[in-house]
Nucleic acid binder design. Sequence first.
DNA 1: AACGCGGGGTA
DNA 2: TACCCAGCGTT
Length: 347
Amino acid sequence: MIFSKTLNHWYSNNKRDLPWRQTKDPYRIWLSEIILQQTQVAQGLPYYSKFVHEFPSVFHLAQAEESDVLKLWQGLGYYSRARNLHTTAKYIASELNGVFPTIYKDLLKLKGIGDYTASAIASICFNKVEAVVDGNVYRVLSRYFGIDTPINLSKGAKEFKELAQELIDKKNPADFNQAIMEFGATQCRPQSPDCNICPFNKGCIAFNENKIGELPVKIKSAKAKKKYFNFLVFIDKDAKTILEKRVGKGIWQNLYQFPLIETAKSLEFEDFKLAVKKHSLLKEVSFELSLYNEDVIIHKLSHQHLYTKFWIVKVGQSLPNSIPINKIRTYAVPILIGNFIEHFNFN
DNA sequence: AACGCGGGGTA
DNA sequence: TACCCAGCGTT
């Protein structure tokens, strides 16, 4: 009780003015929650505005093409969020007449909605007593109560979920959930939290035992693997190029890229030229090869480091299925490709 | 239970 | 560098 009272007081004095705090419309809350998964508010904010403007209701989103949803999502990462968002919008529009489920159990069935998001929507929109546990909540609770159970093992997930469910303000679950996340985001930060002016510092075990830097405990994930990407930027005699859609498993599903040759290690010009000659598009075709970036571009994902070279391939004839260069900006591409398109002078 | 999945920010 | 972010789906 005292915990939620202190928290509530802090929240009323410190909450940021964010657009999704001005509505209880489940469509907008859902949209904001998907965007904010593993994404900081500052990064997600412009995307939320774009989506609300482009798709004001779940019906607008349901009627869109997936390619348009991905294009709007471009640059935000974790693109399965966008694909699942679209899938669920279509389901809600056509099967549920546009009406969102109001309880945790039913929300959880929707694609892209897991434990956290189901709890967030149920509590914020429908005042259900469902505690959220996100990265902020793990940090706040582990520090205040001095809990060193690893947060990314199922034991920790269970333990913190139960604790949050005990602490939640049963009279105002919506504000409690948002307050504890806001507190973790702006005050009880991962590094250099404001402990000196913290309303919880008297009772905070981590603060009083000097364990702020040790909590929460998290099992380290495996190191990122190195991959060697070579993109073929074709330019044919009609000033057209080739983009391919990424299909199947792996990163950037359903986004577009220049034809890719992945190699086991970084290849120099002559070795790569030999490899390129075998490419299906270049059999019996004369071409002029040049390397765009002298220094390899290292694009870092959380689980892969992509050592990337862009090779310019000029071809004296017309290529099949090629697209005008002035159209490539309409395709959804990974930011690695988008940055290249922005900087390369195609003329 | 473990792993794959983006891109940007902070210290 | 290393870590983190209003996590989820697949295996």
